[in-house]
Write a protein that binds this DNA or RNA. Structure first.
Lengths: 236, 236
DNA sequence: CCAAAAGTGTTATACTTACACCCATGC
DNA sequence: GCATGGGTGTAAGTATAACACTTTTGG
Protein backbone atom coordinates (compact mmCIF):
# COMPACT_ATOMS: atom_id res chain seq x y z
CA UNK A 1 0.00 0.00 0.00
CA UNK A 2 1.17 3.54 -0.69
CA UNK A 3 0.08 7.11 -0.29
CA UNK A 4 -0.93 8.22 -3.74
CA UNK A 5 -0.04 11.22 -5.83
CA UNK A 6 2.84 12.39 -3.71
CA UNK A 7 6.33 13.19 -4.79
CA UNK A 8 9.08 11.11 -3.18
CA UNK A 9 12.52 12.54 -2.53
CA UNK A 10 16.05 11.36 -2.19
CA UNK A 11 17.28 11.80 1.37
CA UNK A 12 20.99 12.13 2.08
CA UNK A 13 23.01 12.26 5.27
CA UNK A 14 26.14 14.40 5.35
CA UNK A 15 28.77 14.07 8.07
CA UNK A 16 30.40 17.17 9.51
CA UNK A 17 33.43 15.75 11.26
CA UNK A 18 35.27 18.08 13.59
CA UNK A 19 38.62 17.39 15.13
CA UNK A 20 41.04 19.36 17.29
CA UNK A 21 44.76 18.93 16.93
CA UNK A 22 45.86 20.67 20.11
CA UNK A 23 45.92 24.11 18.63
CA UNK A 24 43.17 24.42 16.08
CA UNK A 25 39.89 22.95 14.93
CA UNK A 26 39.82 20.89 11.78
CA UNK A 27 37.20 19.51 9.47
CA UNK A 28 37.48 16.22 7.62
CA UNK A 29 36.59 16.55 3.94
CA UNK A 30 36.67 14.27 0.95
CA UNK A 31 37.01 14.79 -2.75
CA UNK A 32 33.69 13.89 -4.22
CA UNK A 33 33.95 10.83 -6.41
CA UNK A 34 31.08 11.33 -8.80
CA UNK A 35 29.32 13.96 -10.86
CA UNK A 36 28.24 16.65 -10.41
CA UNK A 37 31.12 18.51 -8.75
CA UNK A 38 33.41 15.49 -9.08
CA UNK A 39 36.79 16.07 -7.39
CA UNK A 40 35.50 19.06 -5.47
CA UNK A 41 35.82 19.15 -1.68
CA UNK A 42 32.74 17.95 0.08
CA UNK A 43 31.37 16.56 3.30
CA UNK A 44 31.19 12.81 3.34
CA UNK A 45 27.63 11.89 2.55
CA UNK A 46 25.37 9.17 1.27
CA UNK A 47 21.78 8.33 0.59
CA UNK A 48 19.56 6.83 3.25
CA UNK A 49 18.86 3.21 2.47
CA UNK A 50 15.51 1.51 2.62
CA UNK A 51 15.88 -0.18 5.97
CA UNK A 52 18.01 2.20 7.99
CA UNK A 53 17.16 5.21 10.13
CA UNK A 54 19.03 8.48 9.71
CA UNK A 55 21.18 7.77 12.76
CA UNK A 56 22.13 4.43 11.31
CA UNK A 57 22.92 5.99 7.97
CA UNK A 58 25.13 8.59 9.61
CA UNK A 59 27.06 5.96 11.52
CA UNK A 60 27.46 3.80 8.46
CA UNK A 61 28.81 6.70 6.45
CA UNK A 62 31.17 7.85 9.18
CA UNK A 63 32.45 4.32 9.54
CA UNK A 64 33.04 4.00 5.81
CA UNK A 65 35.15 7.12 5.87
CA UNK A 66 37.08 6.77 9.09
CA UNK A 67 36.74 3.16 10.15
CA UNK A 68 35.53 4.39 13.54
CA UNK A 69 32.36 3.42 15.40
CA UNK A 70 30.72 4.60 18.59
CA UNK A 71 31.50 8.18 17.90
CA UNK A 72 29.54 11.09 19.31
CA UNK A 73 27.16 12.23 16.56
CA UNK A 74 24.23 14.55 16.54
CA UNK A 75 21.67 15.57 14.00
CA UNK A 76 21.69 19.14 12.73
CA UNK A 77 18.68 20.54 10.99
CA UNK A 78 17.51 19.45 7.57
CA UNK A 79 18.51 21.36 4.44
CA UNK A 80 15.70 21.39 1.96
CA UNK A 81 16.08 23.98 -0.78
CA UNK A 82 14.51 22.30 -3.80
CA UNK A 83 17.41 23.27 -6.04
CA UNK A 84 20.26 22.61 -3.65
CA UNK A 85 21.49 19.73 -5.79
CA UNK A 86 21.45 20.47 -9.53
CA UNK A 87 20.85 16.86 -10.57
CA UNK A 88 17.72 16.13 -8.65
CA UNK A 89 16.02 17.28 -5.50
CA UNK A 90 17.81 15.85 -2.45
CA UNK A 91 16.87 16.50 1.13
CA UNK A 92 20.03 16.59 3.23
CA UNK A 93 20.25 15.86 6.93
CA UNK A 94 23.67 16.81 8.25
CA UNK A 95 25.18 15.19 11.33
CA UNK A 96 28.06 16.54 13.41
CA UNK A 97 30.65 14.17 14.76
CA UNK A 98 33.43 15.03 17.18
CA UNK A 99 36.47 12.83 16.93
CA UNK A 100 39.92 12.65 18.39
CA UNK A 101 42.20 13.17 15.40
CA UNK A 102 44.69 10.71 16.81
CA UNK A 103 42.12 7.94 16.71
CA UNK A 104 41.63 8.49 13.02
CA UNK A 105 44.93 7.23 11.68
CA UNK A 106 44.15 7.52 7.97
CA UNK A 107 42.86 3.98 8.23
CA UNK A 108 42.42 1.69 5.28
CA UNK A 109 40.22 4.23 3.65
CA UNK A 110 42.53 6.32 1.57
CA UNK A 111 40.19 5.65 -1.31
CA UNK A 112 38.11 8.64 -0.29
CA UNK A 113 41.06 11.05 -0.39
CA UNK A 114 39.99 12.44 2.94
CA UNK A 115 41.89 15.37 4.34
CA UNK A 116 41.78 17.44 7.53
CA UNK A 117 41.45 21.14 6.81
CA UNK A 118 41.83 23.84 9.45
CA UNK A 119 38.42 25.40 9.99
CA UNK A 120 39.93 28.79 9.37
CA UNK A 121 41.02 27.93 5.88
CA UNK A 122 38.50 25.62 4.31
CA UNK A 123 38.43 25.15 0.57
CA UNK A 124 35.26 26.04 -1.28
CA UNK A 125 32.67 23.36 -0.60
CA UNK A 126 30.02 22.01 -2.91
CA UNK A 127 26.33 22.89 -2.75
CA UNK A 128 25.29 24.26 0.65
CA UNK A 129 27.90 22.34 2.61
CA UNK A 130 29.55 25.50 3.90
CA UNK A 131 26.21 26.57 5.36
CA UNK A 132 25.92 23.23 7.08
CA UNK A 133 29.35 23.59 8.60
CA UNK A 134 28.59 27.10 9.81
CA UNK A 135 25.36 25.97 11.41
CA UNK A 136 27.02 22.97 13.02
CA UNK A 137 29.80 25.09 14.43
CA UNK A 138 27.31 27.48 15.85
CA UNK A 139 25.41 24.69 17.46
CA UNK A 140 28.61 23.24 18.86
CA UNK A 141 29.56 26.61 20.35
CA UNK A 142 26.19 26.86 21.94
CA UNK A 143 26.06 23.36 23.28
CA UNK A 144 29.62 23.22 24.55
CA UNK A 145 28.91 26.24 26.74
CA UNK A 146 26.68 24.02 28.88
CA UNK A 147 27.44 20.42 28.12
CA UNK A 148 30.69 18.53 28.51
CA UNK A 149 30.96 17.47 24.89
CA UNK A 150 34.29 18.89 23.84
CA UNK A 151 35.95 16.01 25.67
CA UNK A 152 35.00 13.90 22.68
CA UNK A 153 37.70 15.69 20.75
CA UNK A 154 40.46 14.66 23.13
CA UNK A 155 42.14 11.37 23.90
CA UNK A 156 41.18 9.58 27.11
CA UNK A 157 43.95 11.38 28.94
CA UNK A 158 44.40 15.06 28.38
CA UNK A 159 45.89 18.02 30.17
CA UNK A 160 44.23 21.18 31.43
CA UNK A 161 46.19 23.37 29.02
CA UNK A 162 44.90 21.23 26.14
CA UNK A 163 41.37 21.53 27.39
CA UNK A 164 41.71 25.25 27.78
CA UNK A 165 43.12 25.63 24.29
CA UNK A 166 40.07 23.82 22.99
CA UNK A 167 37.65 26.19 24.66
CA UNK A 168 39.71 29.18 23.66
CA UNK A 169 39.75 28.00 20.08
CA UNK A 170 36.04 27.40 19.91
CA UNK A 171 35.10 30.77 21.34
CA UNK A 172 38.05 32.63 19.87
CA UNK A 173 38.83 34.16 23.18
CA UNK A 174 41.47 34.07 25.88
CA UNK A 175 40.51 32.56 29.20
CA UNK A 176 42.35 33.16 32.44
CA UNK A 177 43.87 29.83 33.35
CA UNK A 178 43.27 30.16 37.07
CA UNK A 179 39.57 30.80 36.54
CA UNK A 180 39.36 28.09 33.93
CA UNK A 181 41.00 25.49 36.13
CA UNK A 182 38.83 26.35 39.08
CA UNK A 183 35.64 26.10 37.09
CA UNK A 184 36.44 22.86 35.37
CA UNK A 185 37.64 21.18 38.54
CA UNK A 186 34.54 22.33 40.39
CA UNK A 187 32.43 20.16 38.13
CA UNK A 188 33.96 16.99 39.56
CA UNK A 189 34.07 15.56 36.07
CA UNK A 190 37.84 15.40 36.01
CA UNK A 191 40.13 12.91 37.63
CA UNK A 192 43.80 13.78 38.00
CA UNK A 193 46.21 11.12 36.86
CA UNK A 194 49.67 10.55 38.25
CA UNK A 195 51.55 10.94 34.98
CA UNK A 196 52.47 14.11 33.24
CA UNK A 197 52.51 15.02 29.59
CA UNK A 198 55.92 16.43 28.84
CA UNK A 199 55.41 16.87 25.14
CA UNK A 200 54.71 20.56 25.30
CA UNK A 201 56.78 21.82 28.20
CA UNK A 202 59.75 20.94 30.31
CA UNK A 203 57.84 20.96 33.54
CA UNK A 204 55.08 18.80 32.12
CA UNK A 205 51.33 19.06 32.68
CA UNK A 206 49.33 16.53 34.65
CA UNK A 207 47.02 14.29 32.71
CA UNK A 208 43.36 14.25 33.59
CA UNK A 209 40.63 11.85 32.57
CA UNK A 210 36.85 11.96 32.69
CA UNK A 211 35.53 10.64 35.95
CA UNK A 212 32.76 8.43 34.62
CA UNK A 213 31.24 7.98 38.04
CA UNK A 214 30.49 11.66 38.28
CA UNK A 215 29.62 12.05 34.64
CA UNK A 216 25.99 11.17 35.18
CA UNK A 217 25.46 12.68 38.59
CA UNK A 218 27.02 16.02 38.18
CA UNK A 219 26.94 18.87 35.76
CA UNK A 220 29.14 21.63 34.59
CA UNK A 221 27.98 25.01 35.60
CA UNK A 222 27.59 27.51 32.87
CA UNK A 223 30.67 28.64 31.06
CA UNK A 224 30.46 32.25 30.23
CA UNK A 225 33.15 32.07 27.62
CA UNK A 226 30.62 32.87 24.95
CA UNK A 227 29.33 36.43 24.97
CA UNK A 228 25.84 36.34 26.41
CA UNK A 229 24.37 38.31 23.55
CA UNK A 230 25.34 35.50 21.22
CA UNK A 231 23.89 32.86 23.44
CA UNK A 232 20.75 34.78 23.26
CA UNK A 233 20.09 35.47 19.70
CA UNK A 234 21.99 32.87 17.76
CA UNK A 235 21.59 29.17 17.34
CA UNK A 236 19.16 26.64 18.72
CA UNK B 1 18.95 13.70 -14.93
CA UNK B 2 18.69 11.61 -11.79
CA UNK B 3 20.82 9.71 -9.33
CA UNK B 4 20.29 6.08 -10.14
CA UNK B 5 19.40 3.07 -8.05
CA UNK B 6 18.41 4.98 -4.96
CA UNK B 7 15.21 4.70 -3.00
CA UNK B 8 13.16 7.87 -2.74
CA UNK B 9 11.05 8.62 0.32
CA UNK B 10 7.96 10.54 1.21
CA UNK B 11 8.81 13.51 3.41
CA UNK B 12 6.20 14.95 5.73
CA UNK B 13 6.12 18.01 7.94
CA UNK B 14 4.20 17.86 11.21
CA UNK B 15 3.27 20.96 13.19
CA UNK B 16 3.52 20.95 16.95
CA UNK B 17 1.48 23.96 17.90
CA UNK B 18 1.78 25.14 21.46
CA UNK B 19 -0.44 27.71 23.09
CA UNK B 20 -0.80 29.10 26.59
CA UNK B 21 -4.18 30.11 27.94
CA UNK B 22 -3.02 32.08 30.96
CA UNK B 23 -2.82 29.10 33.23
CA UNK B 24 -1.71 26.10 31.23
CA UNK B 25 0.03 25.00 28.07
CA UNK B 26 -2.04 23.52 25.30
CA UNK B 27 -1.41 21.65 22.12
CA UNK B 28 -3.49 21.98 18.98
CA UNK B 29 -4.46 18.62 17.52
CA UNK B 30 -6.65 17.46 14.68
CA UNK B 31 -8.57 14.34 13.96
CA UNK B 32 -6.80 12.70 11.12
CA UNK B 33 -8.96 12.66 8.02
CA UNK B 34 -7.64 9.64 6.17
CA UNK B 35 -6.43 6.09 6.70
CA UNK B 36 -4.55 4.73 8.48
CA UNK B 37 -5.58 5.90 11.95
CA UNK B 38 -8.49 7.89 10.53
CA UNK B 39 -10.30 9.90 13.22
CA UNK B 40 -7.43 9.48 15.69
CA UNK B 41 -5.82 12.54 17.24
CA UNK B 42 -2.76 13.68 15.41
CA UNK B 43 -0.46 16.58 14.76
CA UNK B 44 -1.38 18.55 11.69
CA UNK B 45 0.89 17.37 8.94
CA UNK B 46 1.34 17.14 5.24
CA UNK B 47 3.73 16.00 2.56
CA UNK B 48 6.42 18.28 1.22
CA UNK B 49 5.57 19.36 -2.29
CA UNK B 50 7.91 19.42 -5.24
CA UNK B 51 8.74 23.09 -5.22
CA UNK B 52 8.68 24.06 -1.58
CA UNK B 53 11.29 23.93 1.17
CA UNK B 54 10.48 22.42 4.56
CA UNK B 55 9.99 25.84 6.10
CA UNK B 56 7.54 26.73 3.37
CA UNK B 57 5.71 23.45 3.83
CA UNK B 58 5.44 24.02 7.57
CA UNK B 59 4.02 27.49 7.06
CA UNK B 60 1.59 26.30 4.45
CA UNK B 61 0.33 23.57 6.73
CA UNK B 62 0.05 25.82 9.75
CA UNK B 63 -1.83 28.33 7.69
CA UNK B 64 -4.24 25.70 6.40
CA UNK B 65 -5.04 24.71 9.93
CA UNK B 66 -5.18 28.02 11.73
CA UNK B 67 -5.44 30.66 9.06
CA UNK B 68 -2.43 32.37 10.63
CA UNK B 69 0.81 33.46 8.96
CA UNK B 70 4.06 34.92 10.21
CA UNK B 71 4.12 32.69 13.23
CA UNK B 72 7.26 31.72 15.08
CA UNK B 73 8.22 28.24 13.88
CA UNK B 74 11.29 26.17 14.32
CA UNK B 75 12.46 22.86 13.00
CA UNK B 76 12.86 19.96 15.42
CA UNK B 77 14.88 16.97 14.46
CA UNK B 78 13.87 14.47 11.82
CA UNK B 79 12.08 11.24 12.74
CA UNK B 80 13.18 8.45 10.52
CA UNK B 81 12.27 5.00 11.83
CA UNK B 82 11.62 3.05 8.65
CA UNK B 83 8.39 1.58 10.04
CA UNK B 84 7.00 4.66 11.74
CA UNK B 85 4.12 4.80 9.27
CA UNK B 86 2.55 1.43 8.53
CA UNK B 87 1.51 2.32 5.00
CA UNK B 88 4.82 3.35 3.58
CA UNK B 89 8.08 4.75 4.78
CA UNK B 90 7.69 8.46 5.56
CA UNK B 91 10.41 10.70 6.89
CA UNK B 92 8.85 13.25 9.24
CA UNK B 93 10.26 16.64 10.07
CA UNK B 94 8.35 18.20 12.94
CA UNK B 95 8.15 21.94 13.47
CA UNK B 96 7.18 23.71 16.67
CA UNK B 97 5.02 26.79 16.50
CA UNK B 98 4.16 29.08 19.39
CA UNK B 99 0.91 30.91 19.01
CA UNK B 100 -1.28 33.17 21.04
CA UNK B 101 -4.45 31.16 21.53
CA UNK B 102 -6.54 34.30 21.26
CA UNK B 103 -5.28 34.92 17.76
CA UNK B 104 -6.52 31.55 16.68
CA UNK B 105 -10.25 32.13 16.83
CA UNK B 106 -11.41 28.83 15.40
CA UNK B 107 -11.20 30.50 12.01
CA UNK B 108 -12.90 29.23 8.91
CA UNK B 109 -11.12 25.95 9.34
CA UNK B 110 -13.45 23.88 11.39
CA UNK B 111 -13.13 21.27 8.71
CA UNK B 112 -10.05 19.91 10.46
CA UNK B 113 -11.84 19.39 13.78
CA UNK B 114 -8.92 20.98 15.53
CA UNK B 115 -8.95 21.09 19.29
CA UNK B 116 -6.72 22.52 22.01
CA UNK B 117 -5.73 19.90 24.56
CA UNK B 118 -3.98 20.70 27.83
CA UNK B 119 -0.47 19.32 27.60
CA UNK B 120 -1.05 17.49 30.83
CA UNK B 121 -3.90 15.47 29.44
CA UNK B 122 -3.24 14.69 25.83
CA UNK B 123 -5.14 11.93 24.10
CA UNK B 124 -3.18 9.06 22.62
CA UNK B 125 -1.50 10.28 19.46
CA UNK B 126 -0.81 8.35 16.29
CA UNK B 127 2.56 6.96 15.26
CA UNK B 128 5.46 8.65 17.03
CA UNK B 129 3.72 11.99 17.46
CA UNK B 130 3.90 11.84 21.25
CA UNK B 131 7.66 11.47 21.00
CA UNK B 132 7.79 14.52 18.77
CA UNK B 133 5.79 16.54 21.27
CA UNK B 134 8.04 15.44 24.13
CA UNK B 135 11.14 16.39 22.23
CA UNK B 136 9.70 19.71 21.19
CA UNK B 137 8.70 20.54 24.73
CA UNK B 138 12.15 19.70 25.94
CA UNK B 139 13.70 21.90 23.33
CA UNK B 140 11.32 24.71 24.23
CA UNK B 141 12.24 24.44 27.89
CA UNK B 142 15.85 24.60 27.02
CA UNK B 143 15.62 27.46 24.62
CA UNK B 144 13.25 29.57 26.68
CA UNK B 145 15.78 29.53 29.50
CA UNK B 146 18.01 31.77 27.41
CA UNK B 147 15.98 33.26 24.62
CA UNK B 148 12.95 35.51 24.82
CA UNK B 149 10.66 33.24 22.83
CA UNK B 150 7.80 32.63 25.21
CA UNK B 151 6.50 36.08 24.35
CA UNK B 152 5.22 34.52 21.15
CA UNK B 153 2.56 32.80 23.23
CA UNK B 154 1.16 36.05 24.56
CA UNK B 155 -0.80 38.88 23.00
CA UNK B 156 1.03 42.12 22.21
CA UNK B 157 0.15 43.44 25.62
CA UNK B 158 0.57 41.20 28.60
CA UNK B 159 1.08 41.52 32.33
CA UNK B 160 3.95 40.40 34.49
CA UNK B 161 1.79 37.90 36.37
CA UNK B 162 0.84 36.33 33.02
CA UNK B 163 4.46 36.15 31.99
CA UNK B 164 5.43 34.62 35.28
CA UNK B 165 2.68 32.02 35.06
CA UNK B 166 4.05 31.05 31.68
CA UNK B 167 7.55 30.43 32.97
CA UNK B 168 6.21 28.67 36.03
CA UNK B 169 4.08 26.42 33.85
CA UNK B 170 6.91 25.54 31.51
CA UNK B 171 9.34 24.64 34.27
CA UNK B 172 6.73 23.35 36.68
CA UNK B 173 8.15 25.45 39.43
CA UNK B 174 7.23 28.43 41.57
CA UNK B 175 9.23 31.60 41.05
CA UNK B 176 9.45 34.43 43.55
CA UNK B 177 7.66 37.34 41.93
CA UNK B 178 10.07 39.98 43.17
CA UNK B 179 13.04 38.15 41.73
CA UNK B 180 11.18 37.39 38.54
CA UNK B 181 10.16 40.99 38.01
CA UNK B 182 13.64 42.27 38.68
CA UNK B 183 15.21 39.87 36.24
CA UNK B 184 12.78 40.44 33.43
CA UNK B 185 12.86 44.19 33.76
CA UNK B 186 16.65 44.19 33.84
CA UNK B 187 16.66 42.89 30.28
CA UNK B 188 15.19 46.12 28.98
CA UNK B 189 13.00 44.11 26.67
CA UNK B 190 9.81 45.25 28.34
CA UNK B 191 7.99 48.51 28.01
CA UNK B 192 5.40 49.41 30.63
CA UNK B 193 2.09 50.59 29.24
CA UNK B 194 -0.25 53.02 30.92
CA UNK B 195 -3.29 50.75 31.02
CA UNK B 196 -3.97 47.94 33.39
CA UNK B 197 -5.54 44.57 32.90
CA UNK B 198 -8.33 44.23 35.40
CA UNK B 199 -9.57 40.87 34.24
CA UNK B 200 -7.87 38.90 36.94
CA UNK B 201 -7.78 41.18 39.94
CA UNK B 202 -9.45 44.22 41.36
CA UNK B 203 -6.33 46.24 41.57
CA UNK B 204 -5.35 45.39 38.03
CA UNK B 205 -1.90 44.60 36.64
CA UNK B 206 -0.01 46.89 34.32
CA UNK B 207 0.30 45.84 30.74
CA UNK B 208 3.75 45.50 29.23
CA UNK B 209 4.80 45.13 25.64
CA UNK B 210 8.01 44.09 23.95
CA UNK B 211 10.31 47.00 23.38
CA UNK B 212 11.30 46.31 19.81
CA UNK B 213 14.09 48.84 19.91
CA UNK B 214 15.88 46.86 22.55
CA UNK B 215 14.95 43.48 21.18
CA UNK B 216 17.96 43.33 18.91
CA UNK B 217 20.49 45.17 21.03
CA UNK B 218 19.99 43.55 24.35
CA UNK B 219 19.72 40.14 25.78
CA UNK B 220 18.13 38.36 28.64
CA UNK B 221 20.53 37.05 31.15
CA UNK B 222 20.26 33.43 32.00
CA UNK B 223 17.15 32.29 33.78
CA UNK B 224 17.92 29.67 36.28
CA UNK B 225 14.36 28.48 36.46
CA UNK B 226 15.38 25.18 34.96
CA UNK B 227 17.50 22.97 37.19
CA UNK B 228 21.05 23.13 35.95
CA UNK B 229 21.42 19.39 35.84
CA UNK B 230 18.68 19.25 33.26
CA UNK B 231 20.21 21.99 31.20
CA UNK B 232 23.24 19.89 31.17
CA UNK B 233 22.20 16.49 30.16
CA UNK B 234 18.96 16.88 28.27
CA UNK B 235 18.07 18.40 24.99
CA UNK B 236 20.00 20.24 22.34
C1' DC C 1 71.23 29.39 34.79
C1' DC C 2 67.58 30.60 32.06
C1' DA C 3 63.64 30.17 29.02
C1' DA C 4 59.12 28.28 28.70
C1' DA C 5 55.08 26.50 30.23
C1' DA C 6 52.48 24.81 34.56
C1' DG C 7 50.48 25.65 38.70
C1' DT C 8 48.31 28.22 42.37
C1' DG C 9 45.06 32.43 45.91
C1' DT C 10 42.86 36.66 46.94
C1' DT C 11 39.85 40.41 46.42
C1' DA C 12 36.10 43.24 44.35
C1' DT C 13 31.99 42.99 41.97
C1' DA C 14 27.85 41.12 40.14
C1' DC C 15 24.25 37.96 40.40
C1' DT C 16 21.09 35.01 42.82
C1' DT C 17 18.19 33.78 46.46
C1' DA C 18 15.29 34.16 50.35
C1' DC C 19 12.11 36.67 52.59
C1' DA C 20 7.19 40.08 54.17
C1' DC C 21 4.49 43.88 53.99
C1' DC C 22 1.58 47.57 51.94
C1' DC C 23 -1.52 48.94 47.98
C1' DA C 24 -5.64 49.38 45.14
C1' DT C 25 -9.97 47.95 44.06
C1' DG C 26 -14.65 45.67 43.50
C1' DC C 27 -17.84 43.68 45.94
C1' DG D 1 -14.31 46.94 55.29
C1' DC D 2 -12.36 43.03 53.63
C1' DA D 3 -10.69 39.66 50.39
C1' DT D 4 -7.90 39.28 46.35
C1' DG D 5 -4.15 39.70 43.65
C1' DG D 6 -0.39 43.41 42.45
C1' DG D 7 3.50 45.73 43.58
C1' DT D 8 7.94 46.71 45.89
C1' DG D 9 13.33 46.45 48.82
C1' DT D 10 17.04 44.51 51.43
C1' DA D 11 20.48 41.52 53.08
C1' DA D 12 23.20 37.15 52.82
C1' DG D 13 25.31 33.96 50.03
C1' DT D 14 27.41 32.40 45.86
C1' DA D 15 29.70 32.85 41.42
C1' DT D 16 32.45 35.48 38.45
C1' DA D 17 36.34 38.31 36.92
C1' DA D 18 40.59 40.45 37.38
C1' DC D 19 44.98 40.16 38.80
C1' DA D 20 51.09 38.10 39.35
C1' DC D 21 54.26 35.32 41.22
C1' DT D 22 56.52 30.75 42.06
C1' DT D 23 57.69 26.03 40.33
C1' DT D 24 59.84 22.70 37.38
C1' DT D 25 63.08 21.10 34.24
C1' DG D 26 65.46 20.43 29.62
C1' DG D 27 68.67 22.54 27.19
Amino acid sequence: MQYSNQKRLLVAVDCIIFGFDGSEYKLLLIQRGFAPEKEKWSLMGGFVQETESLDEAANRILNQLTGLHDIYMEQIQAFSRPDRDPIERVLAIPYVALIDIEKYQRQINDNFHAHWFPLKSLPKLIFDHQEMVDLALNKLRYKAAFHPILFELLPDKFTLPQLQAMYEGLYETKIDKRNFTRKLLSTNLLKKEKEKDKSSSKKGAYYYSLDEGHYKDNFLSIHNFMPKSEIFFESN
